[in-house]
Lab assay of single mutants.
Amino acid sequence: MQRVNMIMAESPGLITICLLGYLLSAECTVFLDHENANKILNRPKRYNSGKLEEFVQGNLERECMEEKCSFEEAREVFENTERTTEFWKQYVDGDQCESNPCLNGGSCKDDINSYECWCPFGFEGKNCELDVTCNIKNGRCEQFCKNSADNKVVCSCTEGYRLAENQKSCEPAVPFPCGRVSVSQTSKLTRAETVFPDVDYVNSTEAETILDNITQSTQSFNDFTRVVGGEDAKPGQFPWQVVLNGKVDAFCGGSIVNEKWIVTAAHCVETGVKITVVAGEHNIEETEHTEQKRNVIRIIPHHNYNAAINKYNHDIALLELDEPLVLNSYVTPICIADKEYTNIFLKFGSGYVSGWGRVFHKGRSALVLQYLRVPLVDRATCLRSTKFTIYNNMFCAGFHEGGRDSCQGDSGGPHVTEVEGTSFLTGIISWGEECAMKGKYGIYTKVSRYVNWIKEKTKLT
């Protein structure tokens, strides 16, 4: 034993070699072989497995989906700052455009905790909710729209109204504003409101030439003092309507412009014939205590009207009353817009006519005020429907199939267009061939041609 100890002390290297040989010859039971080890760690190889990531292109799944990435790591994937920024906006807080917040056709661009709407022409605001041009839906104005110097929408209202708090709607500024039905039992019968379409306001006024200088022999019209197929109006439903009495009662109609003036057809009036105007009328054979009678003290036909040349060209006249009318729910003026808007309103496509005229061709006159909704007829169809001249200051309205029309005794009465609950004068009943005849239409004086003249002559002093 002493000898062994001496050998170990003198030859430590020998001992180490012996131990190493023993270990190498022993069977290893701690580690699995290569094949079995792979069965336990069965993990798919990654895209760049075996390579240094710093030297390969980034992978979106590896960089940002398996674990949260930084902007720089995302930049490695896209290799483009702009594309990385677009991805980053949604990656950080989701897609803010998912709810489609942009209105009126706006395009949404996502941002971090926010979004941006790219608005089409005519709109602005956070969600493109603000109209900035009158060309689109009248700028959301209830009545009139004008573009300011910086191309912003400025709404306005006709006389007797003021802008509401929203700067879009119009509200009454006087007790009985024009064009409004205020009798409670008839307010439910107000005709369907007309909503502004998209309009090209630059070209809204037709490029028409008034044929002022045409000389033409007097034409022989049949029954051209021209509501057939209409309905009984309720008291106060058309408070701007008046009836004219002269040699015979209810020979023509008219509309209240203001307390002192009536507008009617020029062919209705004769110099030297006494005319009485009755406002607030409903049943011409009954006294309903809503009527107001006034005498006409002055007749002003349009300066281009000449019955000797043509009885229905420039067929418009103004009547001055001896005493002002007292405005109330049964006696209310009709609204008159400017030339541009009167023309736009007419193009809405349908209007209402009213009167006490004959209820059928050569038949009896109506006792109760009649009204009828009539569609506008395109000019080409209008011209083809008659052998008589249709001037540019006239328009056609009615039904091709016949059966409904204005008729004798309705002449001078109103053709009105309702705009968001307020009625505007767009025409004056003038003439036609018979009444409600198939293929024939009622012919009306186009008020847009005469609004400046009306307003100039009827100013209240």
Rank of each mutant, 00 (worst) to 15 (best):
S329I: 04
C335T: 01
L346S: 03
Y441C: 03
E159N: 07
L14W: 11
C119P: 02
E401N: 08
E66R: 05
S107V: 08
Y201V: 11
N452E: 07
D338V: 03
N283P: 04
V30D: 15
V278H: 05
S217D: 10
P175G: 07
W240C: 00
Y47P: 10
F251I: 10
Y352V: 06
S99K: 15
R140A: 15
L103H: 13
T158Y: 04
L321H: 01
I210A: 11
W118Y: 08
R140S: 05
I443H: 05
D405I: 14
Y115F: 13
I15V: 07
F221N: 11
S169M: 11
R62V: 08
T461C: 08
K137D: 15
C252R: 00
K446T: 04
S217A: 08
T209I: 11
S114E: 13
D198K: 09
T225K: 09
L346C: 02
E72D: 15
L369E: 06
Y201N: 11
L321K: 00
C18A: 11
M437N: 05
E159K: 06
S385V: 13
M437A: 09
K260D: 02
T133I: 14
E142G: 07
C155H: 00
S25V: 15
F360D: 13
G349I: 02
Q185V: 12
G236D: 03
L327Y: 05
I428K: 00
C335D: 01
E142N: 05
Q143C: 00
R404P: 14
C170T: 00
E165D: 13
G254M: 01
N304A: 10
F87D: 15
S350C: 08
C382P: 02
E285K: 10
T386Y: 13
N59P: 04
G272K: 03
N295C: 02
C134K: 03
A337M: 01
C119K: 02
S350L: 11
Q167F: 12
D93G: 15
K45G: 11
V273W: 04
K311F: 05
L32A: 15
Q219H: 12
S385Q: 14
G106E: 02
F238C: 04
S187W: 10
P12Q: 09
R83K: 08
Q241A: 10
I390A: 07
Y352S: 10
H34V: 09
L19K: 01
P177L: 01
N213M: 08
D131L: 08
S11V: 14
E124D: 15
T290S: 09
A192W: 12
Y352C: 06
Q370T: 06
C28K: 01
S329D: 15
Q90I: 11
Y91L: 10
G230I: 13
T276M: 06
I275M: 08
M437K: 11
V296Y: 01
M394F: 12
C134W: 03
F31W: 12
V326L: 11
P172L: 04
V248L: 09
I40V: 12
R449F: 13
F71T: 13
N328G: 10
I316F: 01
T422W: 02
Q219I: 10
D322Y: 01
T417V: 10
G254Y: 00
F55P: 15
S255Y: 02
V374W: 05
V269S: 03
A9G: 15
C145N: 00
E159M: 07
R404G: 15
C18M: 12
Y371I: 14
S25E: 04
Y352G: 04
P177M: 01
N104T: 02
T158H: 09
E76F: 11
D410M: 13
N283R: 09
G403S: 12
K440L: 03
Y115Q: 04
N166Q: 03
